[in-house]
Design a protein around this nucleic acid. Structure first.
Length: 648
RNA sequence: GCUGCUGUAGCUCAGAGGUAGAGCACUCCCUUGGUAAGGGAGAGGUCGAGAGUUCAAUUCUCUCCAGCAGCACCA
């Protein structure tokens, strides 16, 4: 037996026999560590305590204190425990795969009938019994042929397919949780009893395609969530509740922002309150873009298919377009149009009308472009994913040499927009050339280099997503993180030499010859609909004052105050504040409650004292305290707050 | 689009083979009340749409539409 050297986190080393396991190492250090150990990091890789270590390595023993590996193992073992529970209850159910995911895991089963919510209770019970049994988890490495034969005999076709998909150089690991067997890459806990039995919950069932492929069979998926202890589980359940309370569909109704109805699925009926947010946001974007050197255009909704054929979209996306056929009386053939699903081809038409010189570049052409896409019914989600929406779209026509500067300029612009909207942080994903692509490697080198240099010049961190770019050019995606930690992709920046080519865009260069411009697609918000949904959920309906649809309610306490209430409202309105009177025959308690529920940020109460002293009593949403201010002081304070951030 | 679930008053929901109920909201009356629901009365529904079974369907069956969750999709 050969000797290998293990190096511990503190730098200490130890010589052991090759084939020693992390479990044996823990045992040799101390009894208590052996008891607490759950897995190990061996050369940075997550190792099962039972896997042999064959070469010199660094090693660190994990315990439940090590959050990432602990959660990984707990969730992963629960996936297996759940699959075992399911097969114990329904022996004819076929197992497939059960990976760890955010907050928990899922496992896909092949079974004719879907699982019911009642089934989940039964499965959970059985899982607790399995955990309580504290049965050992055992692992063996098998030959591919043996494993294949084993699963063929067991009638588990999905496992056979999985084995065939495991790359040739990877070991085939067979695991046993007690008597129950599964194919798994591991690692796992040493016994089922190490799983905290009170910190998991099965959450829902659904269908999912085998291997995520919609042409393959549908399986029944069960989701679970799991944590290291009951408190963490409780905290997560609370988070889910919080997310539900922030749901923009619910707040949209409660705040009377918009509604949707059957006759126009996936399209928004904006109510006065919601439309106020929309137009305020749009006005803000218009000012920002104007200040950053954009020109604004507007282009048609109904466009002949010929243009979509020329742009290449007809081929690829016609199933997702709203088609408008028109029978013209003397026409030889029916005119087939599509509602525009995007603005780019139209912008090229604007660009193409009239000769462009290199002196005109870069040309930043913006449109609040209303688009229609026939999204699959299952994709629709409130105002976040709709069939009719308006993008804060713009295309920058420029030369190859201008790409870097334009990219940097855009990142700074976007950062400024996000900051004004209350998002201090955003993340950049840089998507590079895919395998299937057009254009020379030199050109890709140059454009990718330009984008990367641009990001670096702005000082923002970024991550690279290799091969995720479009077939014609690389792109940047910008992600926002909201108040409860959810991540939303909003902004985008995409380099496109393809569409100018297809649609024949040119400019006259210094040399007097025609050249092909690049087209940079870019958006900050994405769509107004979706972004407003995000703003609502991010703020839980308590929008920043300048965006709040109803900013101030001036509420009378006694009817003798009505006249002065009107005067206060008028004063505020003259300062551009969205103020309204509430002189209804209701008690102040009732009014405060109602406007608080409706998320009105400021309530001014007016009773006899205020009328007498020409003051107002100001109460802010979420605060119990009130302040008495003179009308002048109050209107100055509120007026300043109502000013959009770009106008301070 | 796929799988499952759901669709009853503006909202949240109960209900049953014999054409419907609650709370809140709404209207009116009383009350003029000092910071998160004062009291009373009234009005309001083709029970998502269509077809079938039945003496009788909102209730059972089928088809469609829409919504919800997940999957797939997102130029």
């Amino acid at each position: 037996m050969s000797q290998i050297t293990l190096t511990f986190p503190d730098g200490a080393t130890r010589a052991v026999e090759a084939g020693t396991t992390a479990g044996m190492v823990a045992e040799s250090i101390s009894k208590s560590l052996a008891k607490k150990a759950i897995s190990a990091q061996v050369n940075g890789a997550h190792y099962d305590l039972a896997w042999p270590i064959e070469h010199d390595a660094t090693i660190a023993i994990n315990t439940m204190q090590d959050e990432a590996p602990a959660l990984e193992l707990i969730r992963h073992d629960l996936a297996h425990v759940m699959a075992r529970a399911v097969q114990e209850i329904w022996p004819d159910v076929k197992v497939t795969i059960g990976p760890v995911r955010d907050f928990g895991w899922f496992y896909d089963f092949d079974r004719a009938e879907p699982f019911t919510p009642e089934d989940l209770g039964a499965i959970e019970q059985r899982m607790k019994q399995i955990i309580a049994a504290r049965e050992p988890v055992r692992t063996e490495v098998w030959s591919r042929a043996d494993a294949r034969a084993y699963y063929e005999a067991a009638g588990e076709p999905f496992k056979v397919e999985l084995i065939d998909r495991i790359p040739g150089d990877e070991p085939i690991r067979m695991y046993w949780h007690g008597e129950w067997q599964d194919l798994c890459r591991g690692p796992h806990l040493a016994n089922t009893g190490q799983i905290p039995a009170d910190a998991f919950k099965l959450t829902c069932v659904s269908a999912a395609y085998w291997l995520g492929d919609s042409t393959r069979p549908q399986l029944q998926r069960i989701y679970g969530i799991a944590f290291r202890n009951r408190d963490d589980l409780k905290a997560h359940l609370k988070f889910l509740e919080e997310a539900e309370a922030r749901d923009h569909r619910r707040l949209g109704r409660e705040m009377d922002l918009f509604h949707m109805q059957e006759e126009a699925p996936g399209q928004v009926f904006w109510h006065p309150n919601g439309w106020t947010i929309y137009t305020t946001l749009q006005d803000f974007m218009r000012r920002k873009q104007r200040a950053d050197g954009y020109v604004e255009v507007n282009t048609p909704q109904v466009v002949d298919r010929k243009l979509w054929e020329a742009s290449g979209h007809w081929d690829k996306y016609q199933d997702h377009m709203f088609i408008v056929e028109v029978d013209e009386e003397h026409a030889r053939e029916k005119a087939v149009n599509a509602l525009k699903p995007m603005n780019c081809p139209c912008h090229v038409q604007v660009y193409n009308s009239g000769l462009k010189s290199y002196r005109d570049l870069p040309l930043r052409m913006a449109e609040f472009g209303s688009c229609s896409r026939y999204e699959p019914s299952g994709a629709l989600h409130g105002i976040m994913r709709v069939r009719g929406f308006t993008q804060d779209d713009a295309h920058i026509f420029c030369t190859e040499d201008q790409i870097e500067a334009e990219c940097a300029r855009f990142i700074n612009f976007l950062a400024s927009v996000y900051r004004d909207l209350g998002f201090e942080r955003f993340d950049i994903a840089f998507a590079t050339r895919p395998e299937k692509r057009v254009g020379s490697d030199e050109s890709w080198d140059h454009v990718e280099g330009a984008l990367e240099a641009a990001i670096k010049s702005t000082g923002n961190p970024y991550r690279v997503e290799e091969g995720d770019g479009a077939f014609y050019g690389p792109k940047l995606d910008f992600y926002l993180t909201d108040a409860i930690g959810r991540v939303w992709q909003c902004g985008t920046f995409q380099v496109d030499p393809n569409l100018p080519e297809r649609l024949g865009a040119t400019y006259v260069g210094e040399d007097g010859e025609k050249h092909r411009p690049y087209m940079l697609h870019r958006a900050c918000l994405g769509s107004f609909e979706r972004f407003i949904g995000i703003l609502i959920e991010n703020s839980a309906g308590r929008l920043p004052f300048w965006l709040a649809p109803r900013q101030v309610v001036v509420a009378s306490i006694v009817s003798d105050a009505d006249e002065y209430v009107g005067e206060v409202v008028e004063t505020l309105r003259r300062m551009g504040v969205r103020a309204e009177a509430d002189t209804r025959n209701e008690k102040i308690n009732f009014k405060v409650r109602e406007h608080s529920v409706a998320k009105v940020p400021v309530i001014l109460a007016i009773g006899r004292q205020e009328v007498e002293n020409r003051t107002v009593t100001l109460r802010r949403l979420g605060e119990k305290a009130t302040r008495v201010l003179s009308l002048d002081e109050a209107s100055e304070e509120i007026g300043a707050e109502a000013t959009p951030p770009d106008q301070h």
